[in-house]
Computed example of a mutant assay.
Amino acid sequence: MRFWRRRPAESQPAAPATNVAPPTDEERAEIHEQTGRAVERTRRGIFGRISSLFERADFDESLWDELEEILIGADAGLETTTAILDRVRKRVKQEGVKQSARVRELLREELITILEEPTAEPPAWARPDAPSPLVILVVGVNGAGKTTTIAKMAHAFKRDGATVVLGAADTFRAAATDQLKVWGERVGVRVVAHQPGADPGAVAFDTLAAAESSRADVVIIDTAGRLHTKSNLMEELKKINRVIQRKDPTAPHETLLVLDATTGQNGLAQARTFTGAVGVTGIVLAKLDGTARGGIAFAIAHDLRLPVRFIGTGERMDDLAPFDAAEFVDSLLA
């Protein structure tokens, strides 16, 4: 599937930012396959009980409580679950619906709507007028899968024809730089790094300079896996952001927070803190294939008003899929 669209030639006017080519049939099939694999545990777990609720012909009041229990159990959260069911109840009442099949369809529509509401425009890398170089800052706590996600993104962008440069701005751990260098060699992309303990802002600045001199298309900057409770580390993230903006006032064009999907509702506290510090623009749900808590995607979209940009679907280099709300919901309800 295509993650990156080549920037139009300078002689040609750029298309409007919202005019993004839809996925091809082949890309759509791949998104469907990867999404289904990613949510398999959630579907087989508590979310799978939804199907049994709609097996009877009529849907009565006694089933609302069970539906609420299922959504909360899948980590959609109480506030989000209440909002979803209130919307469905309202439409059921307005239409005078009794048939289970129609209630299921209304639930499907509202689940998709919840996920799509934060997506006002496509991600920067999917726009025909994407800046060059496109700068992506990646943040997240230790163990969330951040470095692996960066490698998968770099692989996807390179596969689509983009020239990619990685910045190893996680100088807090010497192993983090080494890990990114190993991934860079595997993917075949340049990694800009300094010595352990170096100023992360300086690494970010040099990464942008290297991308500029080599006319790279995409820059992805790694950051330390800082605990969201450590205010001094959050301040360091803000500094990296300021350094990037001194080099390019419009950057970073995307700030992605990598969340470990297996942490469920605990990820919301992380997201709130990171958003306050560096203005997160989207979420990557890593390790989604390893949890039955896939309902966290609904809480992220509703409570935080942040779009999910990618989902981790496995351990292979190609196991990263663009998030598609309809595919996600249909896979859960399958």
Score class of each variant (00 low, 15 high):
251 A>M: 05
232 N>D: 15
257 L>S: 02
241 N>V: 04
232 N>F: 10
242 R>N: 12
238 K>Y: 10
244 I>K: 05
235 E>Q: 15
234 M>S: 14
230 K>A: 14
263 T>Q: 00
253 H>S: 04
230 K>I: 09
244 I>C: 07
256 L>P: 01
241 N>G: 13
236 E>L: 07
232 N>S: 15
260 D>L: 00
231 S>I: 15
234 M>L: 15
260 D>A: 03
238 K>L: 11
253 H>N: 05
232 N>Y: 13
241 N>P: 07
263 T>E: 05
235 E>Y: 10
249 P>L: 07
237 L>R: 08
245 Q>S: 09
264 G>V: 02
254 E>G: 04
253 H>F: 06
247 K>C: 14
259 L>V: 08
245 Q>N: 05
238 K>D: 14
255 T>A: 00
244 I>R: 08
256 L>I: 04
236 E>N: 12
230 K>Q: 15
244 I>L: 12
232 N>Q: 15
245 Q>K: 15
257 L>H: 03
235 E>H: 10
233 L>D: 08
258 V>N: 00
264 G>L: 05
265 Q>N: 09
245 Q>D: 04
230 K>M: 12
244 I>P: 03
254 E>L: 10
243 V>T: 12
242 R>Y: 10
252 P>R: 02
250 T>Q: 12
244 I>W: 09
233 L>A: 12
265 Q>M: 06
261 A>P: 01
245 Q>V: 10
259 L>P: 00
234 M>I: 15
261 A>G: 06
237 L>F: 09
239 K>M: 07
238 K>W: 10
253 H>Q: 02
245 Q>C: 08
250 T>P: 00
237 L>A: 12
234 M>T: 14
248 D>K: 09
252 P>E: 05
243 V>N: 02
260 D>H: 01
230 K>G: 11
246 R>S: 10
235 E>D: 15
237 L>W: 13
265 Q>K: 07
252 P>Y: 00
241 N>A: 10
248 D>V: 06
234 M>N: 14
